[in-house]
Amino acid sequence: MLLLLWAMAGIGQTLVNLTTQTLIADRIEVEMQGRVYGAHFAWSHLWWLFSYPLAGWMGKNVPTSAFFYESLIGFALWILVYLVFRVRKENFS
């Protein structure tokens, strides 16, 4: 199950980074793109500084079943938020 969650996180990170890098390429002057890509890389990887210690703490102090069920609840909430904003976008288009 952890491998599945890890794969989902990786796919999500890839989709976000690919979209962001496309926007950078389209909207930033060529001379500045290296700096902007570097800044984007630093910010996109900064969360590892927080997530690794948090994952270690959770692995030691939180029961595995609680993590699994909370992940399912979080995923369900994500889908709900996505559907709400998708419906609003369609109504304004």
Rank of each mutant, 00 (worst) to 15 (best):
M1S: 09
L2C: 06
L4M: 04
M8A: 06
G10S: 02
G10V: 12
G12S: 09
Q13H: 12
Q13R: 14
Q13P: 02
T14C: 13
L15M: 04
V16D: 01
N17F: 08
N17A: 15
N17T: 07
L18E: 14
T19L: 07
Q21I: 01
Q21E: 14
L23H: 02
A25V: 06
A25N: 02
D26H: 10
D26W: 09
R27M: 06
I28V: 11
I28Q: 04
V30A: 03
E31S: 12
E31T: 10
M32R: 15
Q33D: 04
Q33Y: 03
G34M: 13
V36P: 00
H40R: 05
F41N: 03
S44P: 01
H45A: 06
W47H: 01
W47R: 07
L49E: 07
L49C: 11
S51F: 15
S51V: 08
Y52Q: 13
A55S: 12
G56M: 00
M58G: 00
G59N: 10
N61T: 11
V62G: 09
P63C: 09
P63S: 10
T64Q: 09
A66M: 14
A66L: 14
F67H: 05
F67A: 07
Y69D: 01
E70P: 04
S71N: 13
L72Q: 02
I73T: 12
I73G: 10
G74V: 03
G74M: 11
W78V: 15
W78M: 13
I79T: 09
L80M: 03
Y82N: 11
V84M: 05
F92A: 07
S93L: 15
